[in-house]
């Protein structure tokens, strides 16, 4: 990366949900850095905390959930220190969030332009109507929709078009960070490719960083630069996409990659044995140890920290030393 300073810094973010069954630690000391123009994919099983992470960065966690610690910076602005009102302004202009099933979040009884105008007015009340109109048209054109879409109601649009309208709203104010939570999960492959190509292009125009959340590893392989694998509220591995797909380090990341159907391994089914852990009663030590084929004695007791390795990857696993070498193999044999 030529850009020296990260646009997004998440430091030790921690979120819990308080339920009748007890406290669920949904996000456990999650840290992340993202540079302008970078695309990060966040993957993991349902309930691993990826959507919680997104909501926490937006400060949109609702009770019984609570942000219990950590900081989020976009550029020099510390989102976690803003007042409620300042944070409301920061959403959409600094950091925007395209939620899961976003196309169902459009108001069915308002024209597209009305919804877009409301968003702009909220942030920049001084802007003239002509300017607003221009900005709306630009946003629509950048997602390859005709200007006439502005006058339409959501039901007049197809699913892919609605999804692109949501991206247009997400980029209206030129945010520095765009978080897209499974933006294409309800779309067929052709429309999906169209939506992702759109997102890719507007991201390049704006130079923003993108976080793509999802569990479709195929989409990740095609779209992102870096992949972060989450498990039970923690990052287990963050690696450049090529490294992740060709040589995953963390055993969970490896199992995830190996479970994928490709053109070359027809008829081979490799699921991950065992079940995703409960966030209320997390396994001790490394949360993955009950399902891990390489689990050692230390994995049951000591939680591995996410180590940043010299090769630019980060991994949280006792199998590796600080240099990223398989150091503790003898230990495993002994255990």
């Amino acid at each position: 990366m030529t850009n020296p300073s990260p646009i997004l810094r998440v430091i030790d973010l921690q979120v819990s949900y308080y339920t009748e069954a007890g406290r669920a630690l949904a996000l456990d000391h999650a840290s992340l850095e993202l540079y302008p123009g970078e695309k990060l994919g966040m993957v993991g099983e349902s309930g691993c905390g990826k959507s919680t992470m997104a909501l926490a960065m937006m400060r949109m966690i609702k009770p019984p959930g609570r942000i219990e610690g950590g900081k989020v910076f976009v550029g020099d602005t510390e989102l976690t220190a803003l007042s409620e009102e300042q944070m409301r302004k920061a959403r959409l202009s600094l950091i925007s969030y395209i939620p899961q099933g976003a196309m169902n979040s459009l108001n069915p009884v308002l024209r597209i332009e009305t919804q877009m105008r409301d968003a702009i007015k909220e942030h920049q009340p001084e802007m003239s109507n002509a300017e607003i109109q221009e900005r709306i048209y630009n946003a629509l054109e950048s997602v390859e929709l005709r200007r006439s879409v502005a006058r339409m109601y959501p039901h007049e649009l197809s699913g892919g078009m609605k999804q692109r309208v949501c991206i247009a709203i997400g980029i209206l104010l030129g945010p520095k960070v765009i978080i897209a939570d499974e933006p294409t999960s309800a779309l067929d492959v052709v429309t999906q490719r169209q939506v992702m190509e759109t997102l890719d292009r507007v991201q390049k125009q704006l130079g923003s960083a993108v976080i793509l959340i999802g569990h479709d590893m195929g989409l990740m392989a095609q779209f992102v630069d870096k992949v972060a694998v989450m498990y039970a509220g923690k990052f287990t591995e963050i690696s450049p996409v090529r490294d992740m797909f060709t040589n995953p380090m963390h055993p969970y990341a490896r199992a995830l990659i190996e479970s994928l159907p490709t053109l070359d391994n027809k008829g081979v089914f490799k699921g991950i044995p065992g079940l995703a852990p409960s966030l209320i009663r997390r396994p001790s030590g490394c949360a993955f140890h009950p399902r891990c084929a390489y689990a050692m004695e230390i994995c049951r007791t000591v939680t591995p920290a996410l180590e940043r390795l010299p090769n630019g990857r980060s991994v949280a696993c006792h199998l590796y030393d600080r240099e990223g070498n398989l150091a503790n193999v003898e230990l495993r044999m002994a255990g």
Binding site: L157, V190, Q194, G218, L219, M220, A221, Q222, F245, T262
Partner: peptide, 25 residues
């Protein structure tokens, strides 16, 4: 062809196709 070309294979060496998509609308 368009459909197969648009499959996001979880394979870093198999890039998404370049077939242009004629929009549905």
């Amino acid at each position: 062809r368009l459909l197969i070309d648009s499959i996001p294979w979880p394979d870093i060496n198999r890039k998404w196709g370049q077939t242009e998509i004629v929009a549905r609308e």
